[in-house]
Amino acid sequence: MCLVCIAFASWVLKTANPQVGDTWKAVLLANVSALSAIRYLRKYIRAEAVTSEMKPPQNMLANS
């Protein structure tokens, strides 16, 4: 998901025609897409951290 948003933002910026007055729309779309990808990645990392804290260490399971 994250990589798709960043790739889409990159494609939008590459294909935007700077001579047209609508360049700001392409930049806005690229920024929103990139921010969405960053937000998703941060949420995913937080969820992974919480999940790993809840799991007991593997060596404790082997000793039981």
Rank of each mutant, 00 (worst) to 15 (best):
Y44S: 04
A37K: 04
C5Q: 11
W24T: 05
V20W: 10
R42P: 00
I45K: 01
Q19M: 03
A16E: 09
A37V: 03
R42D: 06
K55A: 08
L61W: 06
L35S: 09
L13C: 06
K43F: 03
T51D: 10
A30P: 00
A7K: 09
A9I: 01
R42V: 15
S36N: 02
S52H: 05
C5I: 08
V27S: 15
P18S: 03
P57F: 04
A26T: 01
V32N: 11
V27L: 02
V12Y: 04
A62Q: 12
T51V: 03
A37G: 15
K43H: 04
L61K: 12
Y44E: 15
V50C: 07
A37Q: 05
D22K: 04
F8K: 00
M60P: 01
A34L: 06
S64Q: 14
A26M: 00
V27N: 12
A47P: 01
R46I: 06
N31V: 14
K43G: 01
M54V: 07
V12L: 09
A34C: 12
T23P: 00
L3Y: 03
A9V: 05
L29Q: 06
N59P: 08
Y40R: 13
I6N: 08
N63L: 14
W11A: 15
Q19S: 13
M1S: 14
Y44T: 11
V4M: 09
C2T: 08
L28A: 05
V4I: 12
I6Q: 09
V27H: 00
R39D: 13
Q58N: 11
E53I: 08
A9L: 07
V20R: 03
N63T: 11
V4R: 01
A62L: 12
V50P: 00
L41H: 15
N63K: 11
Q58M: 14
S64W: 09
Q58F: 13
K25G: 00
Y44H: 14
V32K: 13
G21T: 05
Y40M: 13
A34E: 08
L29S: 01
K55G: 04
M60Y: 15
C5P: 01
Q19F: 15
A47S: 12
V32Q: 11
N59M: 14
W24K: 02
V20M: 07
V12D: 12
M54W: 03
A7H: 02
S10H: 10
L61A: 12
V50R: 09
A62P: 06
Q58D: 10
Y44I: 10
L35R: 08
N31I: 04
A49M: 15
L28E: 05
P18W: 02
T23L: 03
F8Y: 09
M1T: 07
L41F: 10
V50F: 06
A47F: 12
A34D: 00
W24F: 00
N59I: 13
D22H: 05
K14L: 05
S52T: 12
W11G: 02
S36Q: 13
A16S: 07
A7Q: 07
F8R: 08
A49E: 15
P18N: 09
P18M: 01
D22M: 07
A9S: 15
A34T: 07
Q58R: 14
M60G: 00
G21C: 01
N63A: 15
S33W: 13
L13D: 00
